[in-house]
């Protein structure tokens, strides 16, 4: 399983990449594997929205399951990945790259400190698998 070292992870399997004061958000390799083949992605926030940590920013559907993607941070939405609606399969093939979902300008960078680093997340995934 791929768990890049430069990202932070949430207990609900979202990842965050921080560049300056902007956080890019997606779901982890582990999460896409659990969901199996993603057939639909809907981003449910819009550019310019002010969003709170914990709010749903996207919904994902596979053939047998559906899942919400929750925001690990609060702030203002500065970009959404509009291509995902047409190419949901990249959530499976490139979860940390092309399958980014939203970019949020951080309102409270302190929220990041509660998130896991790669090592902690790897341990967390291993614990859940049995």
């Amino acid at each position: 399983m791929n768990i890049p070292a430069n990202l932070k992870y949430a207990e609900t399997d979202e990842w965050v990449l921080v560049e300056g004061n902007v956080a890019t958000i997606g779901i982890s390799d582990h999460a896409q594997d659990q969901l199996s083949d993603i057939v639909f992605v809907e981003i449910v926030v819009s550019e310019g929205d002010t969003v709170k940590k914990g709010a749903t920013c996207a919904t994902l559907e596979s053939v047998k399951a559906a899942a919400d993607v929750n925001l690990p941070v609060s702030g203002k939405v500065v970009a959404i990945n509009e291509d995902l609606a047409q190419t949901p399969e990249v959530v499976n093939s490139d979860p940390y790259g092309k399958a980014w979902m939203v970019k949020v300008e951080l309102a409270n960078p302190g929220e990041l400190t509660g998130m896991m680093d790669a090592a902690a997340y790897e341990k967390y995934c291993a614990e859940r698998s049995h």
Partner: peptide, 13 residues
């Protein structure tokens, strides 16, 4: 198809 929208999977959502 598109059954993931339905009540047996999404339940209260």
């Amino acid at each position: 198809t598109l059954t993931a929208r339905e009540q047996h999977i999404r339940r209260e959502k």
